[in-house]
Write a protein that binds this DNA or RNA. Sequence first.
DNA 1: TCGCTCCTGTGCGCTATACGAACAAAGATC
DNA 2: GATCTTTGTTCGTATAGCGCACAGGAGCGA
Lengths: 246, 246
Amino acid sequence: MVSGFARGLQVIEAFEEDRPRLAIADVAKATGLDRATARRCLLTLAELGYADYDGKFFALTPKILRLGHAYLSATPLPRLVQPFLDGLSEKVGQSSSVSVLDGAEIVYVARASQRRVMSINLMPGSRLPAYCASMGRVLLAALPVEEARSLLEQTPRTAFTPQTKTELPELMTELAKVREQGHAVIDQELEMGLCSIAVPLLDSRGRVMAALNIGAPAARVPAADLADRYLDALKDVASSLQPLLR
Amino acid sequence: MVSGFARGLQVIEAFEEDRPRLAIADVAKATGLDRATARRCLLTLAELGYADYDGKFFALTPKILRLGHAYLSATPLPRLVQPFLDGLSEKVGQSSSVSVLDGAEIVYVARASQRRVMSINLMPGSRLPAYCASMGRVLLAALPVEEARSLLEQTPRTAFTPQTKTELPELMTELAKVREQGHAVIDQELEMGLCSIAVPLLDSRGRVMAALNIGAPAARVPAADLADRYLDALKDVASSLQPLLR
DNA sequence: TCGCTCCTGTGCGCTATACGAACAAAGATC
DNA sequence: GATCTTTGTTCGTATAGCGCACAGGAGCGA
């Protein structure tokens, strides 16, 4: 365990949303590191060109994107699914995405956006809480029940809309339903006006590797119609991909 | 300078395209680090959940995307430009992007894709060589002449298509032209069938911060028509953004 | 089967790094 | 303007990680 490395990664992650420019003490507070340690890490980042330093504040530079890019360009999944995603998205005229689970969050690894339906901009690397996203439900449902429960318990579950399901028993029931029917439907739980449907992506050994979804404006496509309209197309893509995965 | 941290970042970057799974010795070779050092860094990555280890090979996990995400969500530029990009892209019916310079490469920091025109998939974090991309020409043209020349000299310049300009004098002449006319046009230098036009994005102090482009299929929009069709729209967006930048 | 090569894992001196406290400087509060 | 807080920085010391060297395995061809 190279603790200097681990500390440095903590420092990078300290630059979260709404905190683009941080002073040494900010980073020390956010990471729990000693100020002297935080300073050394930040100066190292600056020296290597991953951060800018104006004498007071540090800010990450685009060079930091190399780190995530290493994953997106090197990992088979994003590159394999992208053409399928493009085809699917064009065929149904809606955005579609693939994501994987990281803790209690889903991480977008590929996306084909048709037009913008969400207020926030999703792209590879974006994260959403799993409990209220269609792909998140699918991925949680694939875990052993107790593992899913434990993840949900440890996660703050805020209600983004009046329809967001936040209670643990309700969510566990929902996961069971998803597990049984093989897909998940979300009706404006993350954002009003947005609904989506997701299916699991299985690898050649039948394990759930990722989830695939289609998102649509609720005004045009009621949540109740999602399965009728899109489920076949989603399943087609999933089964085309299965032999290619791993 | 925390050398353990610096070494760790090198290790992450060792996972490039076409090399998703690396053994310890591979990483040591790619980074020039001692095997024992590479091993410690890799085990640290695995312990923190940034990498998987099957006893033989290491592979990055999606958690690594948190690092780049810290930049994309925290930095003002990507968040500010995205809505403008969406509007522009929808208006002209073509993909548009914003990128910044990192060494001799451009890095996409935001993108609104209409339909797929390129064989490769571009997304935030993607990189292209600056010398043969429209945004790259704009960004290079904004540098002091000698700095641009030095960057181009040190970069391998391969011809992706028969039209790619690779000779240093020719490129320098091209940069002078771009500097004079205030925009750059690329006609199938990166990929056959694809042309694009880019303008600089200035901050409120008039410095070039980034570049904005529109890409189009050459079959539908000849390169000669790009300026007539899109230059006004690009300039409009650039001047709307200027007061908002920094 | 025997060498040969390449790989991984590990132990050990030596160096460099992190720690914690102490110091100086700059605001903040009254 | 004096006091209190918070900031960035410095410094000596204990320690953790570095690189080298060696041992055990796996794969490969003769």
